[in-house]
Design a protein around this nucleic acid. Structure first.
Lengths: 234, 234
DNA sequence: TTTAGAACGATTGTATGCAATCCAAGTGAA
DNA sequence: TTCACTTGGATTGCATACAATCGTTCTAAA
């Protein structure tokens, strides 16, 4: 049996490589490892009590994700927060998520049309339902610190529902960077943003691809404006 | 001295890991390794005469790029060509490259304004000049098979010129997938598309960020329409 | 004092060996 | 026949050992 409750997602049963990768990424996003920090495989291996090999693979993956930069035979350093790219990243995200929402709606329509229920589709759909419920509870109880993670899982879930692995992969990358942009100011995207998720989900469930695309586009656009207003002062 | 001419980019002096990674990606894009092909580390290690470790890292990188899919303890398989995602990938690329072109123009303006010349900037700018010249020569001689690679290098070069590592990284990912979409039909994007590159470069050099953004956006949009017309029959 | 050059330490890159895991074929009894 | 179980092979995941490379520092000569 898994532990009944996970206060912080420790992922104790994951493969060491994945565990280390998630841990380092988290440390970078939360600022525990500030930009410019030098990272060596040996030090991390000792810290986590494992060999260099999984650490090495984790670091390479994080390099592909844009969190660390490594030079051959010279070690890795933590990249700078892409704060200058914020507006552009949001622009790309807007195009990307509009597409995933529309495709998710198309998938939903196909799902209800054909009599053959797709196991995978229903699993994701049920998970999204739970995410929405959890978010509503969090809003009611004013536990806004839980929203960022739930928000990310919602958007990635929609991407999964779209059935497109390449779009979902791209979104994962951008979502990580945007989470990094919000840094420690995590609890501020607010209740209004969360409320919009229900409308997006409803449009997808109804199979209204145009509505879903539009709702998601406006939703992301508001996020973008909110961010730029608060952080960039524009 | 490096070999004077490289008929096909063999990259004989790169690190084994990088070499293998590029080779496998190329085999996948060109169709030598069709979708669904099973890939094992041992087989590749024997094929390239190296150990499993660099092969393993190359495969993980290709998984992050979306070319192969691996399951724990079960091996990897070549992913399917994301042909259904073509239109969406082009849409994302349009947003992305509009941003890189605008930022590249801003960088150019800053470059000419301040008296301090940036070594890196000029290196990339000179490389772009050479790419443009090579492309023109290829067009004049009707060697259209050379255009796809030059085209990719031009667009990635503009991204480098933008100075944004995160945007450049995203474009690399999308560009790989789009090259995959064109598959073996590589020589067909035509002379007209290439001619537009000069106008984009001129707008960037002039520091006209709006013009650069617009020209690049229209350029990519035409590519998108061309692709969808020829391949998707829409 | 300055500078060219060599030697050293630190770090990554690669190779090999072993452990963990999964899948499928085979085996036995109901 | 069918189904549960075992068992074997194949494959990846990890640990350890060694080789290649880069920066720096120290030295010695101009």
């Amino acid at each position: 049996m898994p532990s009944p409750v996970r206060p912080s997602p420790d992922n104790g049963d994951l493969a060491p490589k994945q565990r280390v990768q998630d841990e380092i990424r988290r440390d970078i996003i939360l600022g525990t490892l500030p930009a410019g920090t030098r990272i060596t495989e040996t030090a991390l291996a000792k810290k986590y009590g494992i060999s260099r090999v999984p650490v090495r693979e984790a670091l390479h993956a994080l390099e592909a994700e844009g969190f660390v930069e490594s030079k051959p035979f010279a070690g890795s350093t933590v990249c700078a927060i892409p704060v200058d790219d914020a507006d552009d990243l949001f622009a790309v995200r807007e195009a990307l998520e509009s597409a995933t929402a529309r495709r998710a709606a198309e998938q939903a329509a196909a799902q209800f049309a054909s009599g053959a229920p797709d196991e995978r589709w229903w699993r994701i759909r049920k998970e999204l339902a739970k995410i929405l419920d959890d978010g509503d509870v969090a809003v009611q109880r004013d536990e806004l610190h839980r929203l960022p993670e739930l928000n990310m899982r919602f958007h990635l879930g929609i991407a999964e529902l779209s059935g497109s692995a390449s779009l979902a992969g791209l979104l994962r990358q951008i979502a990580n960077k945007i989470e990094w942009l919000y840094a420690s100011d995590v609890g501020s995207r607010g209740k209004q943003a969360w409320a919009e998720h229900r409308a997006i989900m409803a449009a997808i469930d109804a199979g209204h691809s145009g509505d879903a695309e539009g709702a998601m586009g406006r939703h992301v656009h508001k996020s973008r404006e909110g961010y730029m207003r608060r952080f960039s002062g524009k």
